[in-house]
Design a protein around this nucleic acid. Structure first.
Lengths: 192, 192
DNA sequence: GTTTTTTATGTGAGTGCTTACTTATTTATA
DNA sequence: TATAAATAAGTAAGCACTCACATAAAAAAC
């Protein structure tokens, strides 16, 4: 069975249900990890924020690392959904355009913004990049650049993704970063 | 008195001297903060790594934050020195070439690598970008692009610096990142 | 359909250990 | 000998995690 957009969406709809309190722990941990960092957030703090006994964290997730991994696993799914619309675009120009619009889409929604901030924060705190998450996107970009006649589509795709990491760094950390100026400049560079 | 390369270098040579053990603490803390993170590194660990009693850290730096700030302050100076050779280059093509060579220079020296890794790690842990550190470099790049006839030199410079942040993210976090492939591709893109 | 048994969910007071930091005392240097 | 540098041995607070126990929900037995 081939992987399609519908299959990706289905995987989220059929996601295993969980208890109210378990979900509250996940939401509280996501918020605290994103704002204070993983190591700086204690399990007692998470329990307090979630309105739950501390022991329940360990009942559901085994240990603190288990809670972290549960959040990361959930994140992989969210990321795939977030990229699905780009990956299955057939027109190359439109694909690049949609890709460049990613950061604007992130900036528009506070919850989405927090999610990606956490992803980058954890990357640096745990020192794992998780390149497999970006691989389908890189491949789709590479195909698009190839269709558009670029001489080095694979490298062109990689460089564009590296650029996205740079933009994320600035957007989340530099207080007066002018996102629109940079994105529209990139539009002209790629002749869109 | 105008700021020149010599003035920048002088500031390091005349830098206040410090005791052996104080410097050992700074070196150990830099290494541990860079590789394990600020919150994940205990003062006792630093003392052990430096071969020094734990109390000495607090005698010299007051508290853990004081040690962190001392490292960051030292870092601003190191960053200026590191960029000086690029900023005072007059030939635009050579300036861009030297800039693109920065990451290779970082990769060559473990201590320099630790230093820049720490800078980025702390950026994310403390959520401050410190754009003023990069401003002279951005200005120099902008002038170079202007000399080379680029229509939007300021934006071109900013995009190149953003790219550097992306490259740093990959270089420090993605285990199999091919730095040389990306850098040499950028050389061709800028026709160097 | 009610009782009994089993399982899943949840609690809060502990556990030993580590943390950042202090203080009293000794060692080196000028 | 006076002052600064360094140490060893603390301290209270906070950490991740455990455990005996309570309750609620589901399954099984009658």
């Amino acid at each position: 069975m081939p992987v399609t957009k519908d299959v990706l969406l289905l995987q989220v709809i059929t996601h295993n249900r969980m208890t109210d309190k378990k979900e509250k722990i996940l939401i509280a941990a996501l918020k605290l990890f994103a704002n204070e960092g993983y190591n700086a957030t204690s399990t007692s703090k998470i329990a307090k924020e979630a309105g739950v006994s501390e022991g329940l964290i360990f009942r559901h997730f085994g240990n603190k690392e288990g809670l972290r991994d549960a959040i990361l696993l959930d994140g992989e799914e969210k990321a795939r959904i977030f990229f699905a619309d780009i990956i299955f675009e057939t027109d190359p120009q439109e694909l690049i355009r949609k890709f460049l619009n990613l950061s604007r889409k992130v900036a528009e929604d506070q919850e989405v913004s927090d999610f990606w901030k956490l992803q980058y924060k954890l990357k640096w705190e745990l020192e794992v990049y998780g390149e497999h998450k970006m691989e389908p996107l890189e491949h789709a970009l590479s195909v698009a650049f190839s269709k558009m006649g670029y001489p080095e589509p694979a490298l062109e795709a990689r460089l564009l993704l590296i650029n996205l990491d740079g933009i994320a760094t600035r957007y989340f950390l530099q207080k007066n970063f002018d996102l629109d100026a940079v994105i529209s400049f990139m539009h002209t560079k790629y002749k869109l």
